[in-house]
Amino acid sequence: MTTPRLRAADDDGVTWDDPSGQDIQRLYAGLNARRRFLVLERIDVPERELGQHYVQVALNDDFTVVLEYRDGAADRHYRSEVDVPSDQGGSDLVVPVLLGWAAGHQDWRGGLAWVRWDVTKERPWGGYG
């Protein structure tokens, strides 16, 4: 048995090891008013870096999303917003980010504008985090 390299989790704490691209799409499509978060985390990193390599999605009340990713140290922590509701084409912007990140592609960030996230100045997750 091989060690998982990727773990998906929702805000209920349910996890999936090494989800396929189809699994990731299904998990994202399943976000709703009761299940708002999806986190993909790299777990094939050195133990001291666990929890520092991830991409996550939060669904807003209007079905737009906030994405966040961290690639190691705090100075490599970014966020982006998709102002188009998922059911009106927003998923066409979000899904390629999730799949590209999970697959380790170099160009996964290309479709969105990313800004550095400063936890001392903002909370893009609103009351959720």
Rank of each mutant, 00 (worst) to 15 (best):
Q106W: 08
R70K: 13
V94W: 14
G104P: 10
L6M: 08
D62T: 01
V66E: 06
L50W: 06
W114N: 01
E81H: 14
P46M: 11
G127A: 09
T15V: 14
D17S: 11
Y128S: 02
R79F: 12
A103D: 13
L27R: 14
K121Q: 15
G89K: 13
R48N: 10
V84G: 05
G104Y: 11
D18I: 10
T2P: 08
L59T: 06
Y28A: 12
V45E: 06
L112A: 04
D11T: 04
G72W: 05
V39Y: 08
V65L: 02
V115Q: 15
L59W: 02
D17V: 00
L6R: 04
N60V: 00
E47A: 14
D61R: 12
R36Y: 09
D23E: 08
V55G: 01
A102V: 03
I43A: 01
K121H: 13
F37V: 11
N60K: 13
V94E: 12
F63H: 14
I43D: 02
R48Y: 07
L93Q: 15
W117A: 00
R35I: 08
G104A: 07
G111E: 14
H105N: 10
A8T: 04
G110S: 15
D62L: 00
L38P: 03
E68A: 12
H53C: 03
A8Q: 04
Q106N: 09
G89P: 14
R34P: 04
D87Q: 12
D62P: 02
V119L: 03
R34M: 07
R79V: 10
A33V: 05
G90V: 09
G89E: 13
R36P: 05
A73S: 07
L99D: 07
R26E: 11
E81S: 06
D10I: 05
R116L: 00
L99Q: 11
D75F: 07
G21T: 12
L98N: 04
R123P: 00
A9T: 05
G72Y: 03
D17W: 03
P85R: 12
N32I: 04
Q22T: 15
P85S: 11
R42E: 01
G21M: 06
A103F: 03
E41H: 06
A102Q: 01
K121S: 09
G110C: 11
E41P: 02
R5D: 02
V65M: 05
T2G: 06
A113K: 14
T3S: 08
